[in-house]
């Protein structure tokens, strides 16, 4: 609760929370109600303009209701973002802990392997997964999660290294605290704030990456709905029906903005002195465009 209050105190945190709240709300509402079945194709109602035939935002070429798709798309987008963040957390934390806790030479190998993976294009991972398993939410989530995870590993490693070298951890160790006890009692609680901030950024990266991958044809196919997929399908007709492209684009932008601002709010809350962690930022922002 104190975290929540601290987040709300910062302007960006509050705006971020509202935007993310809207995203979550849309996703939840779409579970029980949408104006129309978002997947129902009725070609005779294709390309209706907004506010005609009971369709507030109009319909696409197959006659599917745009508003219903946007609401249902929030579900797909949120799911993608959360799953990707979960995978990133597991991958990142495992690699980071492996790097700092094992004997030095193995640690060096892990560090080097992480760097190789960071240099490996996420897009390629996505393409290969898509080729092997077919495009699905899982392929997108895995590619983005692993891509963000290796970057997270770099950040978490630096942070873990810092914490392990602090006097009190060294003292605890000297006093006979076992490795796992140190990890549980000292390491994890101390790197948690950084990780949380980073994970909020992973969420925004995942939303953008889902849009980009779906656009390139590596996204989840029917009956799944996501904003990236809507962009992919509608971009062909942007000259004839630009609004059908503009809405999902704005929805993506609002969610990404929400996650980013929330991340800023969390950071400000976690670090009142506004100490800037350039390394922390560097790791994750880079994946933006992929």
């Amino acid at each position: 609760m104190t975290v929540l209050r601290a987040v709300l105190k910062s302007r960006s945190g509050a705006v971020g929370l509202v935007l993310v709240g809207l995203l979550v709300l849309s996703a939840l509402v779409s579970l029980v109600w949408t104006p129309y079945d978002p997947t129902l194709a009725r070609p005779q109602d294709g390309w209706l303009l907004p506010f005609s035939g009971g369709h507030v935002l109009g319909t696409d070429r197959l006659g599917r209701d745009e508003l219903s798709q946007l609401l249902a798309g929030a579900r797909g987008t949120l799911l993608t973002a959360l799953l990707a963040a979960a995978i990133a957390a597991v991958v990142g934390l495992t690699l980071a802990l492996a790097a700092v806790l094992v004997p030095r030479w193995i640690g060096a190998v892990v560090v080097q392997l992480t760097d190789v993976l960071i240099a490996f294009p996420v897009l390629l991972i996505a393409m290969i997964l898509t080729a092997v398993y077919g495009g699905s939410t899982w392929t997108v989530v895995t590619a983005v999660g692993v891509g963000a995870g290796v970057n997270l590993a770099r950040v978490a490693r630096a942070e873990a290294g810092r914490v392990l070298n602090t006097d009190y951890v060294l003292a605890a160790h000297a006093a006979g605290s076992g490795t796992w006890r140190t990890v549980r009692k000292h390491l994890l609680p101390n790197i948690a704030p950084t990780l949380v901030v980073q994970l909020s950024l992973v969420l925004s990266v995942a939303v953008l990456a889902e849009a980009a991958l779906s656009f390139l044809g590596f996204g989840a196919p029917a009956p799944a709905i996501s904003w990236g997929r809507m962009l992919h399908e509608q971009q062909q007709y942007i000259a004839a029906r630009p609004l059908l492209v503009i809405w999902p684009g704005l929805a993506v932008a609002a969610s990404v903005l929400g996650f980013n601002l929330l991340g800023d709010g969390l950071r400000e809350a976690a670090d009142a002195r506004l100490r800037v962690r350039e390394a922390a930022d560097a790791g994750l922002r880079v994946r933006e465009a992929s």
């Binding site: 925004s204 953008l208 849009a211 962009l231 684009g249």
Partner: peptide, 13 residues
């Protein structure tokens, strides 16, 4: 805001 905009969408517009 610039960070939040999807690259491909900006290109299309």
């Amino acid at each position: 805001f610039g960070i939040a905009l999807p690259t491909l969408w900006v290109g299309l517009l």
